[in-house]
Nucleic acid binder design. Sequence first.
DNA 1: ACCGCCACCC
Length: 591
Amino acid sequence: MDAAQKLFDEMPHKDELSWTTIITGYIRNDDLHGASQVFDGMNNEKQVVAWNAMISGYMHKGFVSESLEMSKKMNLLGIKFDAFTYTSILSACANAKLFLHGKQIHAYMIRTVINPSHHFLYSVNNALITLYWKCGKTDDARKIFDRMPIRDLISWNNILSAYVDVGRIEEARLVFTKMPEKNHVTWSVMISGFAQNGSGEEGLKLFNQMKSTECQPCDYSLAGAIKSCAAIASLNHGRQLHAQLIQSGFESSLSASNSLITMYARCGVLQDSQSVFLTMPCLDSVSWNAMIAAFGQHGHGAQAIELFEEMLKEDIVPDRITFLTILSACSHSGLIDQGQRYFNSMKDSYGITPGEDHYGRLIDLLCRAGKFTEAKNVIEKLPFYPGAPVWEALLGGCRIHGNMELGVEAAERLFELIPDHDGTYILLSNMYSNSGKWNDAAQVRNLMRSRGVKKEPACSWIEVDNMVHVFLVDDTKHPEVQKVYEYLEELVSKMRKLGYVPDTKFVLHDMENEQKEYALSTHSEKLAVAFGLLKLPSGAMIRVFKNLRICGDCHNAFEFMSQVVERDIVVRDGKRFHHFRNGKCSCGNYW
DNA sequence: ACCGCCACCC
């Protein structure tokens, strides 16, 4: 840059282009100060290109307010914005999620721009779609898209992303099929969109489809496919993708490696997560967050904290997600004091204002530990009107400790806030049936039925020989389920000799005791574990996954089972991992 | 010169 500057200084006659070139040169070298010095040193007839160079430079480097300030000055001087100016400042607003400001610029533009050029139609409208998409205004983004007289691939990709981001996956799918052309971005967005919305299966299918097109997988689409494996816990496919990643030369991609950390953790092989983490040539905060989360989900709170402290020592700045992660980790391991300390340090030491989700984790931390007075205190002093995450955390804690009074209160709030959410009805009715209040339990279920709320059916699955085997409660569909029931019976009688007693308080409907014990023995997680024990080579770890939370009796049963069969059993439920070994679970019964 | 994709938390 020094040489360029010298050459520039020696130029006898400098025109607008040479000034602008030197400015963009500084910006490319991350030297915004240098750029602004050159800009300020320009003679008075600064034209729109020079202004644009500065504005887009600030925008790209994340200096949103500087970028917008410059555009205001420019406007005051009477210099008209062109398509580049609008694109930059709209993007600045999009990046910072400045909805109102962006909307003002949009309105101003409509008032002042009479005959938009083609350039204008593409880039500015695409930036507008992005603005509304990033601010969560999906339908406004769609309006822009629909009103565009001509669209390019970026317009299509933007509207696709807008739907994916808010989980409107069916509309995204529609856009995807209608698109006149597709590129890497298109495929990547759709693949990770499926993964994000719990359709890992479809994500992988799409990834395979992509391979048969002229678009070959890039690091983004690979990351999406790996994320899909994490969602469905398909370790075999995940390992294959890891190999493919290395083969295709993307092993140094941060996003792909970061997704590997999560994938291995969510497939139950924490060691592999760690070896990815340890061998990565460089790490960013996402990598640290992923590894901390991995420890947390596996119940290794102390290790999560250790890593978090190491992260701070390495001068990696923790972000909102780091705190969500560390709070969860503390919560799962019952590290209440540390969790509270970290929560307080968010704002005090890092200037991050805790969001509702952070408060949710804090309340979860307290309630799990039975500290309901403290939790209520937090709720009363909330700086905002408590929403669903707060009451869900409270209800979850109440269920664990059988705190009926507070639980009912939380459930009532949730019925108002999210009446279609099945989890509230299930938790409340479980609380009632756990304490033998069968009538109340039935009433809650009736309420649920009358409102047309469907319960997500419980299912568990296990991967054997590269195939995923799914079991439902009281399964009759799996071809070998009969053998599984027989084997399970055999196991239970051995377990009973060691002291296992089916805990019928986890049965949800009132019936005779014998029936209750039978009902427990048909839980999907028991079937999947028994199937694994039958099919996997002796000594191999059993890794079972369940969509909902593990049942208390199953948890108890697996402790005994791990002792009887002398094997490690790992169960991932909706929230975390349980490692059963020699009659004990890694969660220490704190979950 | 300007507009689009990722990974971490759910």
